[in-house]
Every structure is written in C-alpha cells, then in structure tokens.
Design a protein around this nucleic acid. Sequence first.
DNA 1: CTAATAACCTAACGTTTGTTTGTCTAAGAT
DNA 2: ATCTTAGACAAACAAACGTTAGGTTATTAG
Lengths: 193, 193
Amino acid sequence: MASANPNKQQRSHSRLKAVLDAGAMLFATRGYKATTMRDIASQAGMQPGSLYYHFASKQELLQAIYEIAVEQAQSRLDEAIRSGKNPQAKFEEAIVCHTETMLDQDNYARVMTGVLPGDAPEIEAELTTLRDGYEDSFRRLIRALKLPSKVDRKMLRLFVLGAINATRTWYAPGGKTPRQIGLQIVEILKQPL
Amino acid sequence: MASANPNKQQRSHSRLKAVLDAGAMLFATRGYKATTMRDIASQAGMQPGSLYYHFASKQELLQAIYEIAVEQAQSRLDEAIRSGKNPQAKFEEAIVCHTETMLDQDNYARVMTGVLPGDAPEIEAELTTLRDGYEDSFRRLIRALKLPSKVDRKMLRLFVLGAINATRTWYAPGGKTPRQIGLQIVEILKQPL
DNA sequence: CTAATAACCTAACGTTTGTTTGTCTAAGAT
DNA sequence: ATCTTAGACAAACAAACGTTAGGTTATTAG
C-alpha cells in the first residue's frame, strides 16, 4: 500500500528547521523587509532557490514562522497563567512571562513585534488574527481584575503590552535579566506615581 | 558683490518641503526599508532622480527628516514642561504632550519610532544621538520626581516611552483622541494596580 | 539683453531583489 | 537490484531598487 505515514517528515536530514530558525532570527532582529531570502538561505547553510522547496514565497515563510511564534508564546503564557493563584497574581505572572518570551533569543516570538503591519499585505489579516488570539489571553486576565473605575481596561492592556514589546529595542544581555525587567513593570504598575 | 543672502532658499518655488513632507509621511507609516525613493518622488509630485538635487542619498534624506522630527518634538515638549507647576505636573504634561506628538499625522515625530535600528547603519549613531537628546528631557523630569524606592527610574522612563511609542501601532482616528490616550496613561500610572 | 544657475526632467546605469527552471543525489520502497 | 522521489544545487530570470548623467526651463543678477 501507499505510505503508512500520515505525518510530514519523510526524510531524516531535512533542513526545514534550519530554515525556520534562520528566518525567525533574521525577521525578528532586522525586520521583514530588511531580511532577504539570500540572507535566510545563507544563515541556514543552503542556496536561495532551495528555500522554495519548503515555501512557495517569502510571505508564506513568514506566515509559517509567525504561526510557530504565536504557538510558542501561547503555551508559555498558558502555563504562567495557571501558576497564578488569583486574578491579580495571574496578571502579574503573565506580564513577567510575556517579557521573558519577548527577550528570549531562542524564541520565535520576537517576530511578532519585529514585523511591521503593512510589510506583508497579502497575509496581514492572518497575522493579525493569530496575534489577536494571543492577546485575548490578556483581555481575559484584565477583565477578571479589580480596578479603579478611572482605569480603562482596554488602555491598560495596550499600554502594558506596548511597554513590554518595546523592551526589545533597548534590551541588552548582560544587564538586567528579562525576569527582573518583567518584575519591574509589575512594580511600577503597583506603586502609585 | 556676491550673494548678500546667507540663507538657504534662493528660488521661490522649490519643492524641498514637499520632499521632506512626503518622506516623513512615508517613513513614518511604512518604515525606512519599505519606502522607496520612487514612492517619495511620486508623493511629492516629481521624478525619482530629482530627489538627488536636494539630497545625496536616501540615508541623508532620512537624516534631514529625522533632525526636523526631533526638533519639532523637542520644542513642543519644552513648552509642555514649562506649563507644569511642579515636577509631578511637568512629568504628566510631558506624557500627554509626547503622546499627542506621536499620534499627530502632520508631525514628523513618528519617524523616530517608525525607523528600525539597523535600517540605516551608516547614520545610526547620529540618529541615536538625536533621539537621546530628546529622551534626556524625560531623564531630567523623572530624576526630579519623588518615587517609591522600589521603582527604578530608568525602567520607568523606558516603560512609559515604550508604551506611548507603541500607541502608533493601534491608534485610529475617530476613537479616543491623542489627548485622551495620554491622559489615560497618566491615570494608570497614578492608580495602584 | 545676456550669462549664470537653481530646480527640475528624461533616461538610463548597475545592483539587488524574489522567484523559476532544470539537474543532480542519496535514501526509502518494492 | 531497481525505481521513485525528497531535498537539495547551480544558474538564471524579470522586476524593482538606489543612483547617476545629461539635457531643459525659468528665474535672477549684472
């Protein structure tokens, strides 16, 4: 009969993962437009044309990486939320977790903030949908929070995520750890100015 | 004698401003790499080659725009700071002002957050210096603030600026006004979570 | 009026880009 | 042992890119 293997990988020494890793690292640090297919191929140790065996276009490669990125971030976030005893603690754990995820060099998640809207117009809707799913976790966390009436929940979410996502522009290994940075933003939110 | 005019513009109908406006608008919304010289020329109503009468390269055009951007933002910020009665009020005024500046479509300032580091490697140092000058105002404001001992001043600055700069990714005219958004971030900082 | 030149235009240059094409090779199935 | 094909390679393609060169026009100084 035909192949009894319903899964994908049929060959052992495929360099699909190398391509994804290279693309994720380059998209995350340089952005989408500034990263060329030749850059990715070179980083993955292969020829530019070979990338098109795995993906039909640059945009499809981005989409595949983006999906993994959201998936990785989501599972880490779910675990962090579980560890919080109450809504307040859950929110704080989520903040620290998201910060660590965004500053982790070996994680794909930085691609989410490294790609500008409008960079890949034809798949922008899909990327936005993926990202919205992730941010929904924060929506739920904040909804369950007891807050002063003056605080707009939507604004709180956008400000916190914005502040965390911006850390990637100034973060440098060797200084404060991602965890310390995450804890500091929690501290600033808790202390009245 | 030679020209008794020490200033720049010698011809009345130069379209330098149109070039700067077009470049600022496109760099701000699409980013540096995604904006082509042909895009800018088209937006300014002229030919691509004509841009090189005013600027020797794309990077020089960016630098000129960036300088104006920081200048505009700086003067607006100085005025806002002056209007604050005490350190706390000055800081709050600065937050609202910076938010309004970043969301103003007719201002060059959005270029500061629209250009990724590494987009223009040869002038990156100059751009960073310009931007650091602007952020120094916030450094001084926060230094004069009375804060809980647990709050790291550097982190407070980076988080607040990060949150405000991120507003440009989700802001849409028709909803909350830039001023309302700025006031909300002040409110969130003042209310203990 | 004439000469100079500021401010453009037209047309192209060489390079880089995403992508396509055809060929080769080694591994798994029969 | 043979056949098939996953997975790569080398080489090129057309389009788009930043940029350059030379020509044109209209203003202005003398």
